[in-house]
Design a protein around this nucleic acid. Structure first.
Lengths: 130, 130
DNA sequence: ATAGCAACTTGCATTTTTAAAGTTACATAT
DNA sequence: ATATGTAACTTTAAAAATGCAAGTTGCTAT
């Protein structure tokens, strides 16, 4: 069963390759971290995501959320009025990125673990994945 | 069994999150396309990769290959001398990205298929994945 | 009235990407 | 010997994206 995403803006893909297409959406340093926060870290507000350890700049967070909503991977809804506050949620399409995220996490864990401040130090001191 | 990659340049990761780390390496629009070409398309020369449908700019290709070699995912060796010509190959670490690539491909295929020139046209005319 | 907070937006400097042209080293055809 | 061609890059300049700090809006609490 196909569930094609076509953004409201008429985006033109650069090729028919599914990988190339996917990378036009998630091929950057931040987008999948937002998805991670929504999927696994219970961070659903702008504020909460902004406070994640990677310190995404607010304008980038704003842009990426917009893009993800345009593509139907994320939706938002008010969780209170007066004052109006939104929380962001993954749509079913967004949730479907779980295996992708898992693979990337697994690969990073296997190959990139250790090496924080400075590289090579504290290699086996912590096995947290996310 | 861990096989940590630490590039010869002392790179500092922005967090301990495996996803965030992986994205510092492969979180862009081009890197995984190079890996795709090496892994599945039998494109091993600079020229061959440059000629892929997505038309990667040569300076980006050059930079990315350098980065991938620095991180030990790709190596190159001369396949002839006079004139000296190189071909690029995935290392075992590079090969280990296969499941990641497969997941991304699968996701793109499920969610981003169809919609080329212009979006929405020729939806079911071709089912090639890569 | 003043201060504070969440959710953004704006302005601007820096960095990265892109497209095009140029370079180097060698090979082959005339 | 000279001219043309090719692979693998590098350089340059313009365009786009990113990152940082500060500002805005709408509302609440004191």
């Amino acid at each position: 069963m196909k569930n094609n995403l076509v953004p409201n803006t008429g985006h033109e893909f650069r090729s028919r390759c599914s990988i190339a297409r996917a990378l036009e959406l998630i091929g950057d340093k931040w987008t999948l971290l937002i998805v991670r926060d929504l999927m696994w870290h219970n961070k659903h507000t702008f504020q909460a995501m902004q406070n994640s350890v990677e310190r995404i700049p607010t304008n980038i967070l704003s842009q990426r959320l917009k893009k993800l909503m345009d593509w139907g991977l994320v939706r938002r809804e008010p969780y209170q009025e007066r004052p109006l506050r939104y929380h962001y949620l993954l749509t079913d399409n967004g949730q479907s990125l779980e295996p992708v995220l898992s693979q990337i996490m697994g690969w990073g864990h296997e190959h990139l673990e250790g090496g924080l401040h400075p590289p090579g130090v504290s290699k086996n001191s912590d096995t947290r994945l996310v």
